[in-house]
Computed example of a mutant assay.
Amino acid sequence: MTPQDCIQHFVTEHPIEAAKLLGGITVTAAPVAVAVPLLGALGFGAVGAAGGSLAATIQASIGPVAAKSLFAILQSAGAGGIGMAAVKTAILAAGGAMTAGPVHTLLQCLSSNDTAT
């Protein structure tokens, strides 16, 4: 089986794994492109928690925000601050985790056919 055959077989027989692989590659290739809309959807924006958002609801329920807390890190990231480094790292880790299983499955096919030319 050629490498192209392995890839075609992988995509056909494991469509969910193939989607995870594509998603993981996309996430790791552009973590900020994932982080900014995600933070915005949660309500972490440039000027604070957006009214009526999940972030605003959480902030109202926790009271004063502790420095270096998860909420503070997400708010910093939403505002484009130092917290973005932590968010990017978390996204990269998630992307790596998403790709681990699919890559293993694909490599099994490729390695079992390493004598094919």
Rank of each mutant, 00 (worst) to 15 (best):
G63C: 10
G24T: 04
F44M: 10
D5T: 15
Q75C: 06
A116N: 11
I16L: 15
G48M: 05
A77N: 08
A77Q: 09
L22Q: 11
G51Q: 10
E13R: 14
P37R: 10
A94R: 02
T12G: 11
A35T: 03
A77Y: 02
C109N: 06
A94T: 12
G23W: 06
I16E: 14
V32G: 09
T2C: 08
C109F: 05
G45L: 03
V27A: 15
F44S: 08
D5N: 14
A79N: 07
L110S: 02
A33W: 06
A66K: 07
H104P: 01
L42M: 14
V32A: 14
T105N: 05
A72P: 04
I82D: 08
V34Y: 07
V11T: 15
Q108K: 14
N113P: 04
V36D: 01
M84P: 00
L42A: 14
I7R: 12
F44A: 07
A30V: 13
V65Q: 03
V11M: 13
S111E: 09
D114S: 11
Q75L: 14
V87F: 02
G83H: 07
A90P: 00
I25Y: 02
A50F: 03
A56L: 09
V11R: 09
V27P: 02
S111N: 12
L106V: 14
V32K: 09
A90Y: 01
M84T: 11
L39S: 09
T117Y: 04
I25G: 06
A67P: 07
M98Q: 10
A86D: 03
G95H: 04
V47Y: 02
P15G: 05
A41C: 03
L38K: 08
I82Q: 08
G48Y: 00
F10H: 12
G95I: 02
A100V: 12
C6A: 15
T115N: 10
V11W: 00
E17G: 01
G51I: 00
I16C: 04
